[in-house]
Simulated scan of single mutants.
Amino acid sequence: MDADAFRSPEGRGMNIRFKITQRLLGSIQEDLRRPHAVAHERVGFISAGLAAAHDELLILARDYHLVDDAQYLDDRSVGAMIDASAIRAARQWAMNSRSAIFHVHSHGGRGVPGFSSVDNRENAKFIPNFVSVAPFAVHGAIVLSDTAAFGQVWLSRDKSRPFITTFNAIGAPIRTWRAA
């Protein structure tokens, strides 16, 4: 399916929903809590399928890939910095699986988190590269807290980047939170 099927003009008025199973979310949160020798936090990548109708975009989380310990750089100016091989591996995953890819990390705490200025700067540098190598899907970034999430979707390299409207964690009990 062509990526344009997921795009309304400039992303305005689009209802973007992200669904993930409680099991997958729990394993992601568990991985992101693990300490690392040089990084203050961990990062990973979520693959997702997409479904669209009119101005609705549904993102269905499928799988998670952690970043190997050796792919973290010793950069104390940020919570975590990963090397180019980690980004290349995630880009290859997007191309091979024809999946949407979402960079994910956690700020911990409770309530709906937000991106830091570092997150915004770094996301704007590397998420557009996913769009270049896998233009058949939208891609993005998500930050988790212990109880909620916040995310953004890149519709193209240079168009607007709308926020994910609703997150649903499916399982018992079902959890829903509005993030935008």
Rank of each mutant, 00 (worst) to 15 (best):
M95L: 08
P128V: 01
A80E: 06
S117F: 14
E122M: 10
I101S: 01
E122P: 07
A124R: 12
V118F: 10
F115P: 11
I127Y: 07
I101K: 03
H107D: 07
N123V: 11
S116K: 05
N120T: 13
R110I: 14
D83F: 01
V112P: 08
H107A: 04
A94P: 08
S106P: 08
H107N: 08
I127F: 07
N120H: 13
P113W: 02
P113A: 02
R110E: 15
E122I: 14
V112T: 12
G111I: 02
G108M: 01
F126Y: 10
A89D: 15
A100D: 04
Q92S: 13
F115L: 11
Q92G: 12
A124H: 09
F102E: 04
N129V: 00
R88W: 06
N120V: 10
M81T: 08
R98P: 01
A124S: 15
V118Q: 13
I127H: 02
F102V: 04
M95V: 15
A80F: 13
G111S: 05
N129S: 09
M95E: 12
S97N: 12
I82T: 08
D83T: 04
V104S: 04
A84T: 12
A94F: 04
S85H: 11
E122R: 13
G109L: 05
I87N: 00
V112H: 03
P113H: 01
A90C: 02
F126K: 00
A94R: 06
H107W: 06
S106H: 04
W93E: 12
S116P: 02
D119A: 10
H105C: 07
M95T: 13
S117D: 15
D83V: 04
P128Q: 01
A89R: 15
S85G: 06
F115H: 10
G114M: 09
A94K: 08
A84N: 13
V112N: 06
E122K: 11
S106I: 05
N120P: 02
G114C: 10
P128D: 04
V118M: 09
A90K: 03
G109W: 03
A100P: 08
M95K: 12
G114E: 13
E122V: 15
G109S: 07
K125R: 15
D119V: 07
S99L: 01
S99W: 02
S97E: 14
R121L: 12
M95P: 00
M95C: 09
A89F: 11
G114H: 14
A86P: 05
F102G: 02
F102R: 06
G109T: 05
F102Q: 07
V104H: 05
S106F: 04
S97Q: 11
H103K: 10
E122A: 08
S99D: 12
G111L: 02
R91K: 15
I127C: 05
S85F: 09
Q92M: 10
R110A: 14
V118R: 13
E122D: 14
K125W: 09
G111T: 03
P128W: 00
G109P: 07
V118T: 15
F115W: 12
N129C: 03
G111E: 04
